[in-house]
Design a protein around this nucleic acid. Structure first.
Lengths: 328, 328
DNA sequence: CAACCAGGTGCTGCCATAGCT
DNA sequence: CAGCTATGGCAGCACCTGGTT
């Protein structure tokens, strides 16, 4: 900036005014300064400005694996909210191999240009219970587990199960098998708990849940197994759409019709791009809203008192044609 | 930091030494300072440090829509490369509505804490020809179009077509129809050009390409149309796997067998999670390698002369069972 | 209205110093 | 006194604000 000032024959302050579009600059001067900035390839120093006004206009986001469906949609939702607040995202991916602790994630983020910290906890962190957020900076954990000292936000991975189970109950199903994701997944834990509680609330004994890995192939395996071993089942709740899609393929390969013989539901509403004529009954989450909630709690407006809350955003039941009344 | 120094009764420099794990600090002093830092919730100022040493340890990434398949994989590849260099990513999503110009993207990124700028140009920017990168900072555009003054990196969206077409030619196909993505997409333009050139090189007149929107449903529509209107076609090249998957469904719904009656190929190798027993012959790109190339050209090691290059990373043909010799 | 000067933001490299062996 | 360690002072990185000319 000093260079520009010297080259244009004005003071630094004038350059500053021009750079920030402030008034009280002679039009000729402004143009001359702008020309000089162009010429020298002037780039305002983010460091200087940040140091000066103590804000970074960026929010930190720490995830362990960008490619997981949940994380992508998290980035999207937050990116959209951040843009509305004229804010960037500083993204850090934790090594997939190293242990993922909240303290470590916080330590890493704290050294970066962030006005708030968002940590995606898609599997339980070893130090969740004992974790204390850094004072003086907003911290939000994206997870279903509530925390006494940290605001947590997530789509309601428990409630989505209730929505789907109620739908199946209303159709008349009661023998509803469950195909879950890997058991270390937090989403899985809550989706399964919802399934189980829904059954128990109706005094139906849940049959053993099957464990997949979120992929269609694992859903296929599970569906195959169920088709061959469970004659009484009338519906399958797969914990995501991909596995549901695999399960449907398996059922059909086993000679069972969907939904006439077996109803199938999934979660996420993620198939549309990949499958033509998507017929799967599922739950859709409003990930942009989640992103907005996450962002706004991580970077509270000045004056907002950052009370610790636990926000669970309900999903929306999408009824298509993979569900019907059970075979008699 | 001054606070910590005062509270611990030492100088700022000593605190600095402790914070950075430098030697020449008495063990007792070190512990006392660390305790004080803990107590006061000390967080090193990113702004101060950056201002000091003129580097941000972050690379800027600008994309127009995070959720697009290509962009997700871009983030993933770059995140992985960035982590290897102990670097964060500053992500900016351009508004989906506003016009996407390279100058605007650069302007936005330049005001952020970035040591390099990466711009994903999945559709042609209006100012591509005239764009001049900001001097003094590495700029990489992720796109197939080469630029005289900017390094460009991309998966080889032209070469992937040649790989697939050669595979089909070897099997004996020559009536190969094309289902493309939206024509504004740069990937689409190059994939289609590859298809067309491959045919013309063999003196086969390309039949009119169909235009989809990357979704399985659009592939289905196109597949349906071809099944009903083209008796001579023996193979379909769909410009991504999702449309290929839709096309296969359409062909089967029209009573055609795949691959016995019609062979189908796609690009991206993106179906595995969504479809059980994925049988689609396709091309897989090494997105981590692309991420590494992009990153390393955007943030060149000190001393590297930033020559402008155009890097195209070849894909790998994955032969499965959606292709076979044509029906006689 | 336009421009200048001084001061403050957090951090660290260089140098100085003090106290040792 | 050379050679070492532990510590502190100073300056400057780029920017902006407020007071002053």
């Amino acid at each position: 900036m000093a260079d520009v000032a010297r080259a244009a024959g004005v003071s630094q302050q004038t350059v500053s005014r021009v750079a920030n579009g402030l008034p009280n600059v002679n039009e000729q001067t402004r143009q001359r300064v702008q020309a000089t900035m162009q010429e020298l390839g002037f780039r305002p120093s983010y460091a200087g400005r940040s140091l000066r006004d103590g804000r970074y206009h960026s929010v930190g986001l720490c995830v362990n694996d960008v490619t997981k469906f949940g994380n992508l949609s998290m980035i999207d939702g937050i990116a959209s909210a951040a843009r509305e607040h004229n804010c960037a995202i500083t993204l850090v991916e934790m090594s997939k191999t190293e242990e993922f602790s909240l303290a470590e994630a916080t330590r890493r983020m704290a050294a970066l240009p962030v006005d708030g910290i968002i940590i995606g906890m898609s599997r339980m962190a070893p130090d969740f219970e004992t974790f204390d957020p850094l004072p003086g900076i907003g911290t939000v954990i994206v997870t279903m587990y509530a925390h006494p000292r940290v605001t947590t936000v997530d789509s309601d991975h428990y409630g989505c199960s209730l929505l789907l189970m109620d739908h199946l109950f209303e159709l008349g199903h009661d023998q509803i098998r469950y195909i879950g994701g890997p058991s270390f997944s937090v989403d899985e834990q809550f989706r399964r708990a919802g399934w189980q509680d829904a059954l128990e609330r109706k005094h139906i004994k849940p049959q053993a849940p099957l464990e997949g890995d979120w992929s269609a192939n694992s859903g296929y395996e599970a569906g195959r197994y169920l088709a061959e071993h469970d004659r009484t089942m009338t519906a399958i709740y797969a914990a995501n759409d991909q596995m549901a899609n695999g399960a449907i393929a398996a059922l059909r390969d086993s000679g069972l019709r969907v939904p006439e013989d077996v109803s199938v539901v999934g979660v996420d509403d993620s198939l549309d791009d990949f499958v033509a004529h998507n017929e799967l009954t599922t739950v859709r989450f409003d990930l942009h809203q989640r992103g907005r909630e996450v962002f706004e709690h991580a970077v509270p407006e000045a004056g907002t008192v950052g009370k610790t809350v636990a926000i669970r955003i309900p999903g929306q039941l999408i009824i298509r044609h993979s569900t019907a009344i059970p075979r008699s």
